[in-house]
């Protein structure tokens, strides 16, 4: 009987070692799927329709740098479709704050492409949920592996990040495939901000460092809204949004950003020139 039990014990410990060895990579993250809970928390359990014909997510399969992972959202509605995308919500399921951003597309701006950069903490699904003018939600997803090596979803040069606080840059890109008379534009807004997550504990005081991030960005051509973003800590330091839109002939491009400390950063540029 004793013999039997000891054998069992040996077997059990061997088995658990083997099990640990075979499932250890990413097992913890994969075992639990947070998405159903996120649908409840972020989208109030509204039904999710297949969005593969509505919205695409482009991300590298592996997050090369955990702090700066490029993501592009591309609308896929055909020109003849009479529905319009009103908002796109980007969710990084396994991040500490999964809702990375909610973009609101200007009703007259015809934004078809939005690129930004996010932090990726873990092996994770990334969902994009588009709300269309038909009142329904459409979802699509990709899977991203966390980075290896010494990168971390933290600022690289903490002093420089502070020095840039509130700086804004605007840039217009030439679209060579469009003729000079085309009214399709591609532009980029950069906002200097450390976008601290607030999830790190100070080693000395054992208090959490308060979060400090950009939570709202609004962009206009003259007084017509182009794009707005509600952001969270999953957006990389120095938030950067590159997007396409249709010019209404406006002379000015305007940006306003707010952060969690109540700072308001505003800037206006000549619409067709790049500048700081």
């Amino acid at each position: 009987m004793l013999r039997h039990r000891i054998r069992l014990l040996c077997f059990a410990s061997l088995a658990s070692v083997a099990l640990a060895a075979s499932v250890a990579p990413a097992a913890a993250a994969d075992a639990y799927d947070p998405w159903p809970g996120l649908v409840q928390d972020i989208f109030n359990n509204r039904p999710m329709n297949d969005g593969s014909d509505v919205i695409g997510i482009e991300m590298p399969a592996r997050a090369e740098d955990a702090a700066i992972v490029p993501v592009t959202l591309r609308t896929k509605l055909s020109p003849g479709d009479n529905r319009r995308i009103k908002t796109i919500t980007l969710v990084i399921d396994q991040n500490p704050a999964p809702m990375a951003a909610k973009f609101t597309l200007g009703p007259d701006a015809n934004v078809t492409e939005i690129s930004t950069r996010v932090r990726v903490n873990n092996y994770t699904d990334v969902h994009a949920v588009a709300e269309l003018s038909d009142g329904k939600l459409y979802v699509t997803k990709v899977y991203v592996k966390a980075s290896g090596g010494c990168s971390a979803p933290a600022v690289k040069d903490a002093e420089e990040a502070k020095n840039r606080l509130g700086q804004m840059r605007y840039r217009q890109f030439a679209r060579p495939e469009q003729g000079p008379a085309s009214n399709i534009r591609e532009a980029q807004i950069m906002i200097g901000h450390p976008n601290n997550s607030g999830l790190q504990m100070d080693q000395v005081t054992h208090l959490y460092i308060p979060a400090f991030f950009i939570n709202e960005v609004q962009l206009w051509q003259d007084d017509s809204p182009v794009l707005a973003m509600e952001g969270g800590i999953s957006i990389s330091e120095d938030p950067n949004i590159r997007f396409t839109y249709v010019s209404n002939g406006a002379k000015h491009f305007r940006a306003e950003a707010k952060d969690t400390d109540g700072h308001v950063f505003q800037h206006e540029w000549n619409a067709d020139a790049s500048g700081t």
């Binding site: 640990a20 060895a21 250890a24 990579p25 990413a26 955990a66 903490n121 873990n122 966390a146 980075s147 290896g148 010494c150 971390a152 979803p153 933290a154 600022v155 903490a158 790190q200 504990m201 100070d202 080693q203 000395v204 460092i209």
Partner: peptide, 21 residues
């Protein structure tokens, strides 16, 4: 010290995956 504060936990979690418990 700041770098260890900002990155330490992430490193511990991340390398658990490749180096084991």
């Amino acid at each position: 010290p700041r770098a260890l504060t900002m990155r330490g936990q992430f490193y511990l979690d991340g390398f658990r995956r490749t180096m084991g418990d």
